[in-house]
Design a protein around this nucleic acid. Structure first.
Lengths: 300, 300
DNA sequence: CTGAAAGCGCTAACAT
DNA sequence: ATGTTAGCGCTTTCAG
C-alpha cells in the first residue's frame, strides 16, 4: 500500500467526518492523554487568567490541551476538582493551592500524575513549586515608605488565612525591624475583602485619630479601592500596592506598585511540569521569583 | 453483598489511589465525556477570560469540565483546535469564530457534537449564536456625539477584517444617516492595532489640519491608548470607547463607553449549549444582546 | 511484511 | 438478585 493512497483514504475519511477517537488510544496503560489540568482560584481574576493563558500556550507547544477549573478558595472543591481531573487521566496538574494539605494527592502522584504548585506552597506533598518573593517585595515597599519619612503606615489586607498575605505581612515586619522601628508604625487592617471595603477602610482611617500618611494595599483589588477613595478625597497620602495591573500608570493619582511577572511564574511552572511529564525524576525543586518596586510616589 | 461492604471496598480502593478511569467509560457509543471545548481568540484578554470564566462556571453546574483553547485570530488554528477537541470527544463546542467558514464542522455536528457560536456569527453552518448589538451600540454612541454638537469625529479601529469592527463601523454610518449628515463627518482611521498605535494616531490627527473634536475608539485596547494620549496633551476632545473595562471610571479624564454584558452573553451561550447537549433539537436561534451608553462626557 | 487477535477499563446486555 | 461476557476504538503483539 503506497503512501499516497493512505493519504487519500485518510483525507476521505476526514471529509466524511470520521475523527479518530483520541480517548480510546489512551486506554492502554502508560499512554498520555495530552491533557493537563490547571486548578486556580477564579479564572475571572486577571492574575489567574494570565496564568491560564500562559499555561495553555506552553501546553499547546507540547501538543497538549489545558482543562481549567476554579476552586474559589475552597479546599474541598480543590480536592474534588483534582480527583475529577485525575479520573480524566490528565498527564499532570498545575495547582494554585487553596487548601493547606495536599497529602491526598500522594496516591495519584505515585500512579504517575505529575504535579507542580505555583504562587503558594503545597502542604504535606513534596513537589515542584514556583513562588513569588512576597516577603521581600513587601519589605522593599515598606522600606521605601519609611525612607520617604512615613511613620504612620496603614496596611490593608483581606485575610491572613491566605499564604501570600501572611508572607507580605511578614515582609512589613521585616522592614520595620530593619529600620529599628516599633511594630505600631504599621497599622494592620484585616478583613478588607474588595475594592469597596478598601475604600471604606481608607475613609475610616483618614477620619480617625492620627490618620496614616501612607497606605500599603496588599493586593490589587484593595489597591483599586484605595486609589478611588484617596482620589475622591483629594488626599495626599502615599499609596503603594502589591501587584501591578495594566492601567496602574493611568490612575488619577500617583501609585507605586510592587510588580512581579505572573506570566514568568506560570511559564516556569508549566515548563517544570512538562519536564516531569517527559520523565524528569530529579528531587522536587522550589523556585522563587523576585519582585520589583515601581516607585511613583513623592521623592523624599 | 451489603452496601456497607461496598462502601468500605470503594473507600479502600480510593485510599490506595485507584481512580476509576472516566475516559474508558466514554468509549461506548452515545456516552458523554462531560467535557466541552471553548475556542476563543486569546485567553489573556479580559473579554475572553470573562467568557471562559462564565463558561466554566456554567459547565461546572452541569458536572462538566471546560477545555479552553486560543486560536489567536487564525482560522487555520481554529480549525485544528476544533478537530482536536472533537477527537477528544467533547460533548459540545463554544466558538468565538476566527474564520468565516465553518462548514468544515458539519460532519462533526452530524456526528452529534453540539456547537454554539458567540460574539461573532459563524459562516456556512446554521447553529445557535449569541451576539452583541455592535451596530446599535456604535450608532447610539455616535448619535450622542452628534447631539453634543460634534461635527469632526475620528473613528479609530484596527481592522475591518473582524466582524465586530465592520458592524460598529456600519453603526457609525447609521448615526450619520439618521442625522442627515455627510459621511465625511466621521473620519475613519483603520489599522490601529494596539494602545500605542492608538496614541500615535490620536496625536497625528490632533496635529493635522481640522483636528477632530471627538474620538470614537472602537475597542478597549484602542480606548486605553487614546485616553493616555489625550490626557498627556491635556486635550479637551471628547472620547467614547466601545467596550467598558473595569477601571474606566477611574481614568484621568472623562470617558464615555458603550457597555455590554460579556458575562451575560457567555452565560446565555453556554446555557444554549447545554440545552442542546441535553437533547434540544429545535431550529438554531440567534440572540442579540443590547448595549448601554454610559455617558461621562460634556452635556451639551 | 502484512494481517489477525488480544487487551486497555468500563458498562450494558446477557445468562445463571 | 448475582455473575459473566461482549464490545466500545485503539495499539501492540504475535502469528502467518
Amino acid at each position: 500500500m503506497n503512501a499516497e493512497l493512505v493519504d487519500r483514504v485518510l483525507a476521505s475519511v476526514a471529509a466524511l467526518g470520521f475523527q479518530r477517537n483520541q480517548l480510546a488510544s489512551t486506554l492502554r496503560a502508560g499512554r498520555r492523554t495530552a491533557t493537563v489540568g490547571l486548578v486556580i482560584e477564579e479564572l475571572a481574576n486577571p492574575f489567574y487568567s494570565t496564568i491560564a493563558s500562559v499555561a495553555a500556550e506552553v501546553a499547546a507547544r507540547h501538543d497538549t490541551m489545558l482543562i481549567t477549573a476554579s476552586s474559589e478558595e475552597d479546599p474541598e472543591a480543590e480536592r474534588r476538582l483534582v480527583f475529577d481531573l485525575c479520573s480524566r487521566r490528565v498527564d499532570g496538574l498545575l495547582v494554585v493551592p487553596a487548601g493547606s494539605d495536599h497529602s491526598f494527592l500522594r496516591p495519584e502522584v505515585e500512579m504517575g500524575v505529575q504535579v507542580v504548585f505555583l504562587d503558594r506552597p503545597s502542604g504535606g506533598l513534596p513537589a515542584d513549586t514556583v513562588l513569588i518573593d512576597n516577603r521581600g517585595g513587601a519589605r522593599e515597599a515598606v522600606a521605601a515608605l519609611l525612607a520617604a519619612g512615613h511613620r504612620r503606615i496603614a496596611v490593608l489586607l483581606d485575610s491572613v488565612a491566605v499564604y501570600t498575605m501572611r508572607e507580605r505581612l511578614d515582609g512589613v515586619r521585616d522592614a520595620l525591624d530593619d529600620a529599628g522601628l516599633p511594630p505600631e508604625v504599621a497599622r494592620i487592617a484585616e478583613g478588607v475583602a474588595d475594592p469597596s471595603g478598601a475604600a471604606e477602610t481608607v475613609g475610616a482611617l483618614l477620619d480617625g485619630p492620627n490618620p496614616p500618611t501612607a497606605f500599603f494595599a496588599v493586593n490589587n483589588r484593595i489597591t483599586v479601592g484605595a486609589v478611588q477613595e484617596l482620589w475622591r478625597r483629594g488626599s495626599g497620602a502615599e499609596l503603594v500596592g502589591f501587584d501591578d495591573f495594566e492601567l496602574s500608570h493611568l490612575m488619577p493619582r500617583p501609585l507605586t506598585v510592587v510588580a512581579y511577572d505572573t506570566a514568568a511564574m506560570a511559564r516556569r511552572a508549566t515548563e517544570m511540569l512538562f519536564d516531569r511529564i517527559k520523565g524528569d525524576r530529579s528531587p522536587p525543586r522550589t523556585e522563587v521569583l523576585g519582585t520589583k518596586l515601581v516607585w511613583r510616589g513623592v521623592r523624599r
